[in-house]
Amino acid sequence: MSGLWGVARAIMGREFLRFVHQRERFLAALVRPLVWLLVFAAGFRAALGLSIIPPYQTYITYETYIVPGLCAMVLLFNGMQSSLSLVYDREMGSMRLLLTSPYPRGWLLFCRLFGATLISVLQVYAFLGIAALFDITMPVWGYVAVLPGLILGGLMLGALGLVLSSFIKQLENFAGVMNFVIFPMFFLSSALYPLWKMRESSELLHDICAFNPFTHVVELIRFLLYLQMNWQALAWVVGSTVVLGAVALWAYDPSRALMKRKG
């Protein structure tokens, strides 16, 4: 157990050191959601009407509505960013050495994933703090209650990044794949518009958004911020995390890569 804990501290400590040395990464993680919150929301506010939907008990401003989606955006972009560094580590050989160590491969990947998730959560709270300066606030205890949802959502989106990085052979190709995944996941979700608005436009579009796991990350965060639980969203996020984690564990099997090279 002491060996496993030592490995966990080393891997997660490396993630935090990398984050500290890349201050622009922290700023970029905040600029994206703040642009949506302070610029785009001002234009959408007049054009988009919102009905009273759970977990809200009254009419809310559009800025208040999109805050959970922007929190999930931070998790999504940081999960993909962390996976980009995995592609780099694999090209440099450090990831290969790590996976061929005597420690369980699942534990090594989980530590890598959990370290990146904790960094994402810190960025989300920084964003929520800045939003509060503009009078966009949630219930006080909601900031505490949302923590498990942020961690679970970060793990799911990080696991998705692991799966993508396992199939990318060159670092140059990963940016295109990120854009191909990130933007459809974000825009085809309830991050910016309620699902009932999607249904008014297209039943097919609504179904795609409802099937999108990112939608359920957004809704899990939204309900927890208001001290409520969305059990359907929780089931979707947990199930997606398990499936994506299993695929990532299979994809990062060094023996499988060795057999492919021999073939």
Rank of each mutant, 00 (worst) to 15 (best):
V218S: 10
K197S: 09
F214I: 11
L227R: 12
G239F: 13
T215C: 06
K197V: 04
W231R: 14
E219L: 14
L227C: 11
C209V: 15
C209Y: 02
A235T: 14
V217A: 05
L205I: 05
F214D: 07
Q232K: 14
L195P: 02
V242C: 10
R199V: 01
H216G: 07
L205C: 01
N230R: 15
E219Y: 11
L188M: 04
C209W: 04
A210I: 08
N212E: 02
L224Y: 09
K197R: 06
E200H: 01
Q232L: 15
F187G: 00
F214P: 06
L224Q: 12
L234F: 14
Y226G: 06
V242E: 07
H206F: 14
V243Y: 11
W196V: 08
S202V: 04
L244C: 02
I208E: 03
S190P: 03
V218E: 12
T215E: 06
D207F: 04
V238A: 10
L234T: 15
E219A: 07
R199F: 05
L227G: 09
A233G: 10
Q232N: 11
S189P: 01
W196Q: 08
S201D: 01
L195M: 04
S189K: 03
F187W: 01
W196F: 07
F214G: 03
Y193E: 01
M229A: 15
F187I: 02
W236G: 01
F187N: 03
L234S: 13
S201F: 08
L227S: 13
P194E: 03
L234E: 12
D207I: 02
C209R: 05
W231V: 14
V243A: 15
E219H: 13
V217S: 08
L188V: 04
V218W: 11
M229D: 13
L192M: 11
A210G: 02
N212L: 09
L225N: 08
L188S: 02
L234W: 14
A191K: 06
F214Q: 09
L192S: 04
Y193V: 11
L225F: 10
L205S: 02
F223W: 14
T215Q: 11
D207Q: 10
A233V: 09
F214R: 07
